[in-house]
Computed example of a mutant assay.
Amino acid sequence: MSGRNSSELQVLCSSGQLLLQPLWDRLRTWEALVQSPFFPVIFAIITYLGICLPFVVLDFLYPWVPALRRYKIHPDFSPSARELLTCLGQTLYQHLVFVFPVTLLHWLCSPALLPPEAPEMLQLLRDVLLCLLLFDAEFFVWHVLHHKVPWLYRTFHKVHHQNSSLFALATQHMSLWELFSLGFFDMVNVTLLRCHPLTVLTFHVVNIWLSVEDHSGYDFPWSTHRLVPFGWYGGVAHHDLHHSQFNCNFAPYFTHWDKILGTLRPAPPPAWCCSCGGCPSNSGVLCDSHLNQKKHS
């Protein structure tokens, strides 16, 4: 029986690898670019701006599309062109002037080697999840320290809290120390887990997407935290509470560390989730239907 289970697992893993192999073979046709020191910075900037773009478009449409108000955490706030350009300029400046030289140094010390085989699908999914969990724990500790130690907050983390109302391009509005800290956590995790290069790229895309979504200022019915069961994932309203109240919800993604240390503060439900629209976003006031649900839960 165990031999049969083992053979079935091998077939499943092989099929998972075959599923990713065409994609990996296509990426390897651009091997010269992927192995160059320019690729990590180009990939990071294009991925970040590409994920921010839909939310930036929504911010431009917001004044003329009243229907968007029900999905906005702060309905009366829309970032100005100056705020958007300031955050965009800082991101490009830091990546080109500081991140690229560090990437070049890392490339000189250990040039990237691309294996011929793609990773197995289950292995890729497992490693991406482990990287997210490790990053979540590391940044939680870093984040708590930079809020509890006044000098660390004033010197390094205060920059990120200059925008109390969130928008997508504010995601990487941070000090250089914070940017390098997050990059260091990413690099250490994929190295410790010996992740396949395709897994590394996938993790970076997922990590950037989750970060931007958490800072977007929009809470949609299809937002990631609504797709993850049991309240395990915080989401945009969860992170918005951290920016407005400072002393709660320190973990970037998951909720278990805040639950363990008593710093979790649940966000109120958005107005669109009930027919009356009577739960003002971030007010902490529930409409009658939600009060009745809470009584009977």
Score class of each variant (00 low, 15 high):
170 A>H: 03
186 D>C: 09
70 R>S: 08
105 L>Y: 14
259 K>A: 13
33 L>Y: 11
187 M>H: 07
39 F>Q: 05
42 I>E: 06
48 Y>G: 04
221 P>V: 03
249 N>R: 11
220 F>A: 05
267 A>I: 04
280 P>W: 04
284 G>T: 07
194 R>G: 03
115 P>D: 10
32 A>K: 12
214 D>G: 11
250 F>V: 05
53 L>R: 09
106 H>A: 15
222 W>P: 01
271 A>L: 02
271 A>C: 09
283 S>Y: 05
48 Y>E: 10
91 T>R: 00
240 D>E: 14
127 D>N: 06
139 F>K: 01
93 Y>K: 08
273 C>G: 01
104 L>K: 13
116 P>T: 11
102 V>R: 05
259 K>S: 10
203 F>E: 02
120 E>Q: 13
130 L>C: 12
125 L>E: 04
255 T>G: 11
243 H>P: 10
133 L>T: 06
217 G>S: 09
90 Q>G: 00
191 T>P: 01
33 L>E: 11
201 L>H: 00
200 V>D: 00
105 L>S: 14
294 K>S: 15
87 C>R: 01
180 F>M: 13
163 N>Y: 14
260 I>D: 06
39 F>T: 06
2 S>F: 15
15 S>N: 15
278 G>D: 03
205 V>L: 13
105 L>W: 15
227 L>C: 06
207 N>Y: 04
257 W>G: 00
255 T>Y: 08
82 R>P: 00
241 L>R: 00
165 S>C: 12
252 P>C: 13
38 F>R: 13
4 R>V: 14
15 S>I: 06
165 S>F: 09
83 E>Y: 03
199 T>S: 13
273 C>D: 11
242 H>S: 10
150 P>F: 07
9 L>H: 10
2 S>C: 10
281 S>W: 00
17 Q>P: 01
290 H>W: 15
21 Q>F: 09
61 L>E: 08
50 G>M: 15
279 C>P: 02
63 P>I: 06
120 E>Y: 05
168 A>L: 04
127 D>E: 11
212 V>D: 00
171 T>P: 01
178 E>A: 08
276 C>R: 13
